[in-house]
Simulated assay, not measured.
Amino acid sequence: MTVVKVETTTSWSERLRGMDRRVLAAVVVVLVLAGSGTWWFLQRDNLPEGAAFQLGDEVVMADDVDRRIDALEALYGVQAPEKKSEKSDFLRDAAKSMAVQLMLQDEAKERGIVIAAKEIDDTLQTLIEQRYPDGGRTAFVAALGELGASEDQVRDEIGDQLLVSRLFDDVAGDVSIDEAELEAAFEDRKDELATPVRRNLRNIVVADRPSAEKVLRRLRAGESFTAVAKATSLDSSTRDKGGDLGALPADNLEDAYAKAAFTAPVGALFGPVQTESGWNVGRVDKELPAAPAKFAELREALRRTVLAEKSLKEWRTWLKDVIADHDVTYADAYLPDDPGAVPDIDQADVTEGK
């Protein structure tokens, strides 16, 4: 439970520092899994019963799509939604991504790109350690059994993703940027890259207003914020840190909470404030002034970001041509909403299990 907006927890400058082309290549794998477009042609009557789609001469059955989803669940926790309408969209996206994956396999083969078995082994081991930190391989094998999936399916999926990452590097890994272009990019973005006013906040979240008012009375009576937070807060991520939220700008907070937190004087308590997580009582510990973006400090991070953006643009242009060169026939139940779309960052929800 938190008052922080999930989608905007980092500043632009923080995002810059974490982005490079190798990371982007991994992101593109997610995009391919979650939202690549394919073309739909009208001759659907020729598909055999139980087919999801046909790519060229290859027919992919609905069971094949289901097995791939099982492998993704074992690896990443991807699950089809329970609601019928959402599940239908999920299956359409899954079929669409599988068609594009097959196209990319062909493209990789033409370029002589091969993934070694040891690289798949190493990647699988890393994923098992990350996804099943307590049970390890035993928990992984048990999960496969529950899903009716096999380790070979999972290995195939990993191989496909590594293949796409390698293909991305081959297609879009040679972009460059000169100093003039970098300086121009900074001028265009310097307002976004500036650090806004931030406040160091502490917070306690409880279930209802009477509980919040009781917390506020205890704090005003002189009890330690840290002690009251540990004893009463429902937010497990901050409770043991005395409710410390760290330094945050107003835009990173839910609106009602931000208004209260940024109008209260430094050192003052504020609340109760109702948010999606419950009823909150906070304290402003410190205010950090806004700071303009400095080219010298952000130069390398900005360079990596611009290179990543240029790589992605080149990849998308190439991928659009690949998609256009392939004939895909979808069964009605697997027809994507936007068959001709090239993946966007916003389309990554499927593989993140959202």
Rank of each mutant, 00 (worst) to 15 (best):
R92W: 00
A180S: 08
A99P: 04
S236Q: 09
A231S: 13
F53D: 02
W39A: 14
T123R: 14
D325E: 15
T9E: 00
E73S: 11
E86S: 14
V197D: 13
T195M: 12
E146T: 03
E297M: 12
P133Q: 09
D66M: 10
S277M: 05
Q105V: 15
V28K: 00
E276G: 13
K87W: 01
I345T: 07
V78I: 06
N280Y: 00
R67N: 07
K230Y: 00
D285W: 01
R131S: 05
P292D: 14
A116G: 13
S88P: 00
M19H: 07
A291T: 11
G50A: 08
R217P: 11
S88G: 11
G136N: 11
K87T: 12
I204Y: 01
V284Q: 05
A264V: 06
Y76L: 06
S165M: 07
V6M: 07
T329E: 08
W279G: 00
G56H: 14
R22G: 05
Q101E: 15
A99M: 06
K313A: 04
V215Y: 10
I113H: 06
A194I: 05
M61I: 04
E187W: 11
L144R: 05
K87H: 03
I323A: 12
D156Y: 05
F41S: 14
A25N: 00
S88F: 12
G56S: 11
D191G: 07
K313C: 10
A227H: 06
R217G: 13
K259Y: 05
E183M: 15
F168H: 09
Q105C: 11
V6D: 09
D188N: 13
P292I: 00
V322W: 05
A229G: 14
A25C: 01
E82N: 02
G136E: 13
V206S: 07
Q125G: 07
R202G: 15
V3G: 02
E314L: 11
V114N: 08
R67I: 06
P133L: 04
G246E: 01
V197H: 12
R304G: 01
K320I: 05
R131N: 04
E181R: 14
Y76C: 01
T8I: 00
E192A: 12
V27I: 10
A227Y: 04
S277A: 15
D93G: 15
G278L: 08
A301K: 02
E309T: 15
V306E: 12
G112K: 08
D152H: 14
M19Y: 07
V164S: 01
I120G: 05
A26R: 13
L234Q: 10
D121S: 14
A99K: 02
A149Q: 03
D160Y: 15
S150W: 00
L127Y: 04
E276D: 11
A80D: 02
R22M: 08
R202S: 09
N46I: 13
D346T: 06
G340L: 15
N46M: 10
N46H: 07
L124C: 02
D93Y: 11
V342S: 02
S150V: 01
P265E: 03
